[in-house]
Amino acid sequence: MKQNDRGCSQNKGKLALLMFCLCLTLFMLAGFRSGDKQLTAIVSSATDSESSVFAGLPESLSLLSSVGQEVIVPGTTLRVVLKWQGQYSGDSDESEENATMLAEQLGLGKVARSDKDGYMTYRAAASQGDFSKLSMLWTNLEQGGSYVFVTFETQNPLKAEWSQDAAEKTGKLMMAAGITPEWNASLQGTASSLESPGEAIAAIEGSIAAEESGLHRMESYEDVSTVSRSYAIPGIKRFVNSGDHKIALQVAVHKNDNDNSNRVTIGLPVITIEY
């Protein structure tokens, strides 16, 4: 590649990342309109426990966006998923009322009730612009209590209404509803590398290492078409325990036999979507 072309490509990449970061300020603003008063009270009464819930979220979202711009084919669609999940230990008889209240505060539509294997579930979802969707699933548990998922998904983060601030508001709303939430974030798209999955994931490791020092591979899986690796990163405060390891990030590359492309999936702290 000529020097001028390389410089142009780098400038375009920086512009794309800038656009991405700007778009992070807009996520879900419309979805929180109905809960503005409640949110003001929640934000003003932040506690130490809230700080631990959100530990690592800013760094992780920043890493996900910057590395994604480096390793995904420019101009192709990205799938970005931010998921909050946690258990509600209150009376399951109040689930419908509580699910309806949380859905309203999130700016979602009417809650749909259904019976799944004898246990009630409550769902609500709404579009957040043309490129994103916010959804909630509240399901009763066999042993009592409930488990709740709130998921934001976009197919184009450059045009999604998504921000770290709004993501934190989601977690605070769940805490105010008596749910103990944890977050995870994933990105998926077509890898710029057309080499083998092993070679492609090595290139992705290089991009991550350039952003975060101390990247250390802890676990690895490989078969004919897929390579998956998990890592510890000292600078990322959010992690999950896997045996004696503290996993902060997982990367997988899967070779698509139809067009010989590589699908890359990055998860913080682990991948929670199919790869």
Rank of each mutant, 00 (worst) to 15 (best):
N4K: 13
L39H: 05
E211G: 08
S207F: 03
A202C: 00
S52E: 14
A248D: 13
Q155R: 08
S65M: 09
E94A: 10
E153M: 09
F239C: 12
S132F: 00
P58L: 02
S220E: 15
R113M: 05
R123Y: 01
D244S: 15
L24R: 15
S135H: 00
M175A: 11
L15M: 13
S66E: 12
P234A: 00
E219D: 07
G198W: 02
A177R: 06
I273F: 00
G68D: 04
L249Q: 09
L187P: 07
A99V: 05
G214V: 05
S114A: 07
G189P: 00
S65N: 12
V253P: 07
S49H: 14
S196L: 08
S62M: 06
C23F: 02
S207I: 02
V67L: 00
R229W: 07
A177F: 03
S146E: 05
W162V: 11
K237M: 09
V224Q: 13
A16M: 10
S49L: 12
N184W: 00
C23A: 14
I273T: 10
P269D: 08
P181G: 07
A99I: 07
S95I: 06
K172E: 11
D5P: 01
A166S: 15
P74V: 00
L18W: 06
H254D: 13
C8G: 10
D257I: 05
D48Q: 14
T272M: 02
T100P: 06
A46M: 12
S230D: 13
K237S: 15
G35S: 07
F20W: 08
Q10K: 11
S95Q: 03
T190F: 01
T47E: 11
D257A: 11
E161Y: 04
G31K: 03
A112G: 01
D259N: 15
D36E: 13
V270L: 09
E212F: 04
L187E: 04
G109E: 09
R263F: 01
G243S: 08
K159N: 09
Q188F: 00
W183L: 07
L106R: 04
I42F: 00
A203V: 11
T76F: 05
V150Y: 01
M136W: 01
S193E: 08
T25C: 09
E104F: 10
Q38A: 15
Q10G: 08
R263W: 05
M218F: 04
A41E: 12
V251M: 14
F27M: 05
Y231H: 07
L215M: 13
K255D: 09
Q164C: 08
A112N: 05
A185S: 14
N98A: 11
N241M: 11
T40D: 14
I236V: 11
S9A: 14
E168C: 03
M136E: 05
S34G: 12
N256W: 01
H245A: 15
A160N: 03
S45R: 15
